[in-house]
Amino acid sequence: MKKLLKILIPCLLIPVVIIIGVITGDKNYAAVSVIVAVLACVPFFLSFESTFTGRKIVILAVMTALSVAGRFIFAPIPFFKPVTAMVIIAAMYFGAEFGFLTGALSAVLSNFYFGQGPWTPFQMFAWGFIGFISGVLADPLRRSKIALVLYAIGSGFVYSLIMDTWTSMWADGSFVLSRFLAATYVSLPVTAVYIASNIIFLLVLTPLIGAKIERLITKYGL
């Protein structure tokens, strides 16, 4: 059943939702994209039970809790949020699927404190996606600092673009390029600060957390 769903959702359900949305709604991209974002997260949650056991479950909870708590801890410094960095680091050391779940859960749980809204599925997808890709690119990211900085910049952009796409679709019901460009332009300073904080966090935290995780691995034989 779960295996079937894992194949059905990306291959059948998502295209069907998009087609129905295009045919029936007045190009209601906002609603369609929310449903697609939710569906995209489902396969990862479904495969949770089979791939996560004992220690990995607790470490997932700790990493996610750290990224959520980071939002509170660094609250006095505006726009300085470690969530993306924590998600990337978690994925680098524990794999792509782990990264996706850390990202998606961080979004749901931090919005549990800051307020859920129609943006929650988008945040889940954006952070999950960033985590997934950094898990795939784990080797180069761990080896070179340049790759890490480039990824920090890239992920800052991707996150902002996904959220701007959301803002503009939500305000229009459909996708209007000029509205999207305006949203991107207005959010440019925030994006810049966001990217800077990503770079700082990743450069400072990656060696720190990396050493801690490696120590844990040798100490407890994970």
Binding site: F45, L46, F48, E49, F52, I57, V58, L60, A61, T64, A65, V68, L105, L109
Partner: peptide, 11 residues
């Protein structure tokens, strides 16, 4: 998934 519920309450 029960595991996911557990992760949730732990977080």
């Amino acid at each position: 998934s029960p595991g996911l519920g557990l992760v949730f309450s732990m977080i």
